[in-house]
């Protein structure tokens, strides 16, 4: 049994070795490497749509990483590269959508919901306070309530 588990474990290790693919890139400087990593983190792979270029192992993602790298090597900056990708694949390629009319709801939606929730809470709390004010007992009512609740000691502390 124990040797079986060892075998199983070893086979998993084996699989990991097979799956691990490393792309070697030689950067001119650390700044370029940083920019590369930021870009492949922020750009989306269109084939496996919930992965960025960094995560994805699809052919398209490889091509796109190569493109990012070659453009950086050509001295292009981040904005140039992002623009280049958006011109071909649309805003969808960006994990962070741009702020424009069709994405307005996306950006201000959460704030809108927060404002609605906040206003509702304030209104509910206010209306509850008002209920309390209107149900304040007069002195006579208060005494009557006292008498009903504590019939045994009628004379005790009438002003409370």
């Amino acid at each position: 049994m124990r040797s079986f588990i060892t075998l199983l474990f070893l086979s998993l290790v084996q699989i990991n070795f097979v799956l691990a693919q490393v792309e070697f890139r030689t950067f001119k400087n650390t700044e370029q490497e940083r920019q590369y990593n930021v870009l492949i983190d922020e750009l989306r792979c269109l084939v496996c749509q919930n992965q960025n270029l960094k995560d994805s192992n699809s052919d398209l993602a490889k091509d796109m990483r190569n493109k990012v790298f070659s453009m950086l090597s050509d001295g292009k900056n981040k904005d140039d590269i992002v623009e280049h990708m958006v011109a071909r694949y649309g805003d969808f390629v960006l994990y962070k959508p741009p702020f424009k009319s069709i994405t307005l709801l996306l950006w201000i939606g959460p704030l809108l919901f927060f404002v609605i929730a906040f206003v509702s809470v304030v209104r509910i709390v206010k209306s509850r306070n008002q209920d309390e004010v209107t149900t304040k007992l007069s002195e006579a009512e208060h005494q009557r309530a006292e008498a009903l609740l504590n019939p045994s000691d009628k004379n005790k502390d009438k002003t409370a």
Binding site: L46, Y89, D91
Partner: peptide
């Protein structure tokens, strides 16, 4: 269909 991404072209 989320696979149909509108083309900017």
């Amino acid at each position: 269909d989320p696979r149909k991404v509108p083309s900017p072209l």
